[in-house]
Amino acid sequence: MSMNFLRTLLFSLALLTGLAPVARAQSIDPFEHGWVLDAAASQLRFLSVKKGNVAETSKFATLSGLITEDGKAQIRVLMDSVDTNIDLRNVRMRFLFFESFNFPEATISVQLDPEQLRDLHQVRRKFVPVTYTLSLHGVTLEKRADVAVTLISNDRITVASTTPIAIKLDEFNLEAGREKLQEAANVVIVPVGVVSFDFVFDRASPGTPPTEAVLAAAPAGAAAALETKGVMDREACVGRFEILSRTGNINFAPASARLDPSSYPLLDNLYDIVNRCPDLNIEIGGHTDSDGSDATNQRLSERRADAVGAYLAAKGIGNARMRVVGYGESKPLRPNDSAENKARNRRIEFVVVN
């Protein structure tokens, strides 16, 4: 017996028994035609705790998602769209914590069981456990959560968390980012984030089942950032240069001034910021740890700063806007007494000089 014949038979029975007013497709197939996320009506929130008892709730502004006809649900989150309601705090979250220049998005995937939702048209609201896959900051893990699925109308549903979902930062290699945030804001942050969500979906039109192209329709990368477009004011520029100096993501080959390709995403973001601060000149300062002689470290810091300046010049930043300086080992951030501290002292810093 074909699925189409079965659907027709069941619908005919509904007509005969006076049940026709009940939701058209929901009584037969909860995923018929598929569903598309209403991003404007949906929210993904996370709560962080700092200073022991100060809780802050933030969200992401750019989401896309779908549920396919076979029940595969996917949500795409653009990390650059983090919204803390404060501009420079957004920038710290993007560059220091999420490292969105390397990990621009997170994805949530769930395979829904149609049998769990077959009677949704009757009960209108169901609580179901789900196993989901979260890909975040280069790590993919399987987790479990309880969700509430609510049928608002035949063509509109919500899927919401019923209890807060704890995300341990160390599971997703976010501990280093937490430390950078603590240092930048001079606060202590609890190493766990608490996530909640309320996703709203609309049924797709017949004959147009949603595909993964729906997920890619949202803006890409930094285009999703909640910030002033075009030229930025001095405060925004100065704050961004200070934050980018703390990332530690400009890398060189050992004892060399050759830029590692892993540095390019951050430098491309830096170029965008310099380009949007046309009235400001910047100093590019190179710093080393204390290994080796003073003279060797001085030369190395100069060459590394030169390499960053050359990269920006090649992209179109005028040399007159950049002052390239090497400080060698003379300005350490931390004592050079451990591998971790030495790594923090090897850095490139950016400072506005006019």
Rank of each mutant, 00 (worst) to 15 (best):
L44F: 14
G221A: 01
I243G: 03
G286L: 05
V187N: 02
M232C: 10
A343E: 15
S301A: 09
D294W: 13
F46Y: 09
R76G: 00
V82P: 12
G221L: 01
E32F: 12
A307L: 05
E283K: 10
T8S: 14
L9Q: 05
N173T: 12
V139S: 08
P265M: 00
Q116R: 14
N319R: 15
G285V: 08
A217G: 04
A148S: 15
D337V: 13
L37D: 05
Y132N: 05
Q298Y: 07
S2F: 10
F103R: 08
S290T: 10
R7Y: 15
S256H: 05
L312C: 10
A106L: 06
T133C: 00
A41L: 12
T62G: 04
D170P: 03
D260S: 15
I75L: 15
M79K: 06
R24I: 06
E283D: 07
A14Y: 12
D306C: 07
A314P: 00
N53F: 13
D272G: 04
A20R: 07
R124A: 10
I165R: 01
T68S: 15
E227R: 14
L96R: 04
Y311N: 11
L215Q: 10
A39E: 09
V82I: 14
P114N: 00
N4F: 09
V139K: 13
D294M: 12
A223S: 13
P219W: 11
T57P: 02
T158K: 06
A145E: 05
A339I: 13
H137C: 11
R124T: 11
F252Y: 15
R304D: 02
D146E: 14
E242M: 11
L300H: 00
Y311K: 10
A339T: 14
N319F: 14
S64V: 00
G292P: 00
K168G: 11
I250S: 03
A106H: 05
K331Y: 15
R346N: 13
N53A: 12
T296M: 06
N345W: 01
F350S: 01
F60D: 01
H33L: 06
V214G: 01
A41R: 08
R76E: 01
V128A: 00
V54I: 15
P335F: 12
A255H: 12
A307E: 04
P30A: 02
Y327M: 05
L78G: 09
T57S: 14
S338N: 01
G248F: 05
V123C: 11
E212Q: 11
I167K: 01
L63Q: 03
P261W: 04
I189Q: 04
Y271M: 03
T228P: 05
N345H: 01
A39V: 01
F95E: 03
L134I: 07
R45I: 13
F98P: 06
A204H: 13
L16P: 02
V325C: 07
K51M: 11
I28Q: 01
A295K: 00
E179K: 14
A106N: 07
K51T: 13
F101R: 06
F241E: 00
A218M: 14
S135H: 07
D291F: 03
N251Y: 12
L78V: 09
R258G: 04
P219N: 07
A220D: 06
W35P: 07
